[in-house]
């Protein structure tokens, strides 16, 4: 999957998409991205609301050639701010892995999900963003680099480091 681009040379024919329409098209997807990065729904919605409110206030939609790309970048930027603010307020708490009772398959899956999410959330912000863009948004490394404003080599390196860390934290499938 790649972020949709406007066709080259089509600027003159480009339709100006109202912010309201962008909201309807992308709000849910952006909240999901933000949620994967910041880790709680309330903050995720706040992040995306702020992005759209700013867009509306500045009437920026008219100049957006790649709305999805712009929104993803803006959401990640604001998510980063949330994480920074949170780090200032308190050190990240321990991972939420407290399910000890043996249970049915759905509970086991939930426990495993919690482990994976906790491991992803403990990654450094940049690595976490790369993982979310790669596995949630299905972006290619080149696209990830474009969204984050880094080189493809740096994006690839971040992804490799993130996966290496996750492998260590989660253990091999046999150990789980």
């Amino acid at each position: 999957m790649s972020l949709p681009r406007s066709p080259a040379g089509a600027a003159a024919q480009r339709r100006v998409v109202p912010v309201r329409e962008l909201f309807e098209q992308h709000y849910l997807a952006m909240v999901r991205i933000a949620y994967s990065v910041v880790g709680d729904r309330e903050s995720a919605e706040d992040v995306v609301q702020d992005v759209f409110a700013t867009l509306q206030k500045r009437d920026r939609a008219a100049g957006l050639t790649e709305p999805r790309h712009y929104l993803t970048v803006a959401v990640l930027n604001r998510s980063r701010s949330v994480l920074r603010r949170r780090r200032l307020l308190r050190r990240a708490g321990p991972a939420r892995v407290e399910h000890e009772e043996a249970a049915d398959e759905s509970t086991i899956r939930r426990v495993e999900s919690d482990r994976v999410l906790a491991a992803v959330r403990r990654l450094p912000t940049r690595q976490r963003e790369v993982v979310v863009l790669r596995f949630l948004e299905d972006l290619a490394v080149r696209e990830i680099a474009r969204v984050l404003g880094i080189t493809p080599a740096a994006a690839s390196s971040s992804l490799n480091r993130a996966m290496s860390t996750l492998r260590q934290r989660l253990g091999s499938p046999d150990e789980r």
Binding site: S113, F135, L136
Partner: peptide, 27 residues
């Protein structure tokens, strides 16, 4: 591992549905 991370992130994202959103308009 990639499948595990991908699946987990997507399951988590799927928990957020249009109906579960707090806002349905730009505040």
């Amino acid at each position: 591992l990639e499948q595990l991370v991908r699946g987990t992130l997507r399951r988590q994202a799927a928990e957020i549905t249009q109906d579960s959103l707090r806002h349905h308009d730009i505040r």
